[in-house]
Nucleic acid binder design. Structure first.
Length: 170
DNA sequence: CCCTGATTCGC
DNA sequence: GCGAATCAGG
């Protein structure tokens, strides 16, 4: 895959819009996020506005062939509070306006989807389709789906019940 | 573990 | 010039 003027233009545009390298790579297709980052640097676009200056690493130390000694630090104390720990869910709640919710399973806020393209999905992202598959803005939910399920907590509730009982959602 | 960008260096 | 491998950090 070569960097045509057109692809470079797209790269410049998306990068300036604040998309991450992996997202840009997904949209361009045929390139890895590393390729995108590499190109960004060659184009000297790394700044992207006002970012903290890079401290610059002291070169790459020679690859150590010796295995590191297996250290067992200390068993971390188990937190009493249950942690959800899903970054996607975290972001979604942080982004949402603060709102008090009753402790009810019925009262679940419709998640803000990450709007991922098909190629951006991983094994643990929600694959609930959103929109018209033939439309330009078609995407998948993309939120954290857990270890095995194909859907996030919210869409899983809809996926595994009769269509007649589903509530129309995005 | 998921992700991010930064850097080096063999190709 | 390109980008995988790697690093450092969230």
């Amino acid at each position: 895959m070569i960097w045509t003027d057109e692809r470079v233009e797209t790269l410049r545009k998306l990068w300036s819009e604040g998309l991450s390298a992996s997202q840009i790579a997904a949209q361009l297709g045929g390139v890895s996020r590393n390729a995108v980052i590499g190109k960004v640097h060659r184009l000297k676009l790394s700044g992207r506005g006002r970012t903290a200056p890079s401290p610059a690493r002291p070169k790459k130390p020679a690859q150590a062939t010796t295995a590191k000694p297996p250290q067992r630090p200390a068993p971390a104390p188990r937190p009493v509070t249950a942690s959800v720990g899903a970054t996607a869910l975290q972001a979604q709640f942080e982004a949402a306006p603060a709102r008090h919710l009753e402790a009810s399973t019925e009262n679940i806020v419709v998640p803000i989807s990450r709007q991922l393209q098909l190629i951006e999905l991983s094994e643990r992202t929600c694959k609930w389709p959103i929109g018209d598959p033939l439309a330009d803005d078609f995407h998948f939910c993309g939120n954290e789906s857990g270890e095995t399920g194909p859907y996030c907590r919210y869409h899983a509730r809809l996926a595994f019940q009769p269509a007649s009982e589903r509530r129309r959602v995005r």
